[in-house]
Computed example of a mutant assay.
Amino acid sequence: MSEEAFKNVQVLRGISVDQFLGTMGFFAASLSLNCTDCHTAESGGSWARYADDTPLKNTARRMVVMVNSINKADFGGERKVTCYTCHRGSQRPEVTPSLAEQYGTPPPEDPDKIEILNANGANQPSAEQILDKYIQALGGAQQLAKLTSFVAKGTYTGFDTDFAKVPVDIYAQAPGRRTTVVHTLAGDNTTTYDGQQAWVAAVDKPVPLMPLTGGDLEGARA
C-alpha cells in the first residue's frame, strides 16, 4: 500500500503503489507541473525527500479531499470531477470566460483525447467484444491458437526515456504470459505478466518489485 512504501502519506492512503504513482502523474498532467514543482528540488535524487512537506503538497491534499467530497455528494461516488476539470493544464483555474475563445475560431479537436466512459453506459461495446472483433480480423481464434510463443525486438520511446529511442525485447508464451524489457540509459525496465498478475522492476520505481493493479494491470494484460 502507498502508506507502507512512502512516508508522510496523509490522504491517498489504502491504494496500491502503482495507483499512487499514477495519481501523481495525473496531478502533474492536470496542472502542467513535474515532480519537483510540488516536492522539493532535492527529491529529484532521493525518494525519502518526497516526504518533505511543501505549500503545494498541502494544497493538493485539500484539493483531493474537496474533489472526493464533490464526487461523493453529487455523483454517487463516481469520478466525474477531477483536478483537470478546473485546472485544464494551469496552476490557477480560470474564473472569467475568455471573449477571444468565445468569439474566436474553435481550437481543433485533440485526436488523442481520452474520454472516461461510464461502465454501465448504453450502446458501448465491451472490451471482450472489441477483442473478439480484433481476433476475427487476424484470422480467428483457431488460426491464432497455432501461435504459442514469440520473441520480438524493437525500439521504445516515452517520457521515461526522455523520448529517446531505446531497445526493447518482448518474450511471450501462451496462454497470456509476457515479459517486456526496455533497456533505458539508467537501467532495464522490466514488466512481467504471468496470465493473472503483473509486476514491474525498474530503477526509477520506489520499490524493487511493484505489483500492478487496476488499469495498469489491464494494460499489462492487453
Rank of each mutant, 00 (worst) to 15 (best):
M1P: 05
E3I: 04
E4W: 09
K7H: 13
N8D: 12
N8Y: 06
N8M: 04
N8F: 02
N8Q: 03
Q10Y: 04
Q10V: 10
V11D: 02
L12Q: 12
G14M: 02
L21R: 03
L21F: 09
F26V: 02
F26C: 02
A28S: 07
L31C: 10
L31G: 02
S32G: 07
L33F: 14
N34M: 05
C35E: 00
T36M: 10
T36R: 15
D37K: 00
D37A: 10
C38V: 03
T40C: 02
E42V: 04
S43D: 04
G45V: 02
S46C: 07
R49F: 06
Y50F: 06
Y50H: 08
Y50M: 04
A51I: 01
A51D: 07
D52H: 13
D53A: 12
P55K: 10
K57Y: 10
K57R: 10
K57I: 07
K57G: 13
N58P: 05
A60Q: 09
A60H: 07
A60P: 01
V64T: 15
V65P: 01
M66E: 11
V67S: 05
V67I: 15
N68D: 14
I70G: 14
K72D: 13
D74S: 14
F75H: 14
G76E: 05
G77Y: 00
G77T: 02
T85Q: 03
Q102R: 13
T105R: 10
P108S: 15
P108Q: 11
P108C: 13
P111W: 14
N118Q: 13
A122L: 08
P125A: 10
A127L: 07
E128C: 07
I130S: 02
K133R: 15
K133Q: 12
K133L: 04
I135S: 07
A137G: 12
A137Y: 11
A137P: 00
A137T: 06
G139L: 08
G140D: 07
A141T: 12
A141S: 12
A141K: 13
L144A: 05
A145R: 13
A145K: 12
K146A: 05
L147F: 06
S149W: 12
K153L: 08
T155G: 14
Y156L: 01
Y156D: 00
T157R: 04
T157C: 01
G158Q: 00
F159S: 14
D160C: 05
T161G: 03
A164N: 12
K165Y: 15
K165A: 15
V166Q: 00
I170G: 00
Y171V: 09
Y171S: 08
R177Y: 10
R178T: 12
T180L: 03
V182M: 09
H183K: 09
T184C: 12
T184I: 09
G187A: 09
N189W: 15
T190I: 15
T191K: 09
T191Y: 09
T192F: 01
Y193N: 02
D194P: 03
G195Y: 11
G195A: 08
A201T: 13
V203S: 08
D204K: 09
D204I: 05
K205N: 07
P208T: 00
L212K: 09
G214V: 01
G214W: 14
D216G: 04
E218C: 05
R221Q: 07
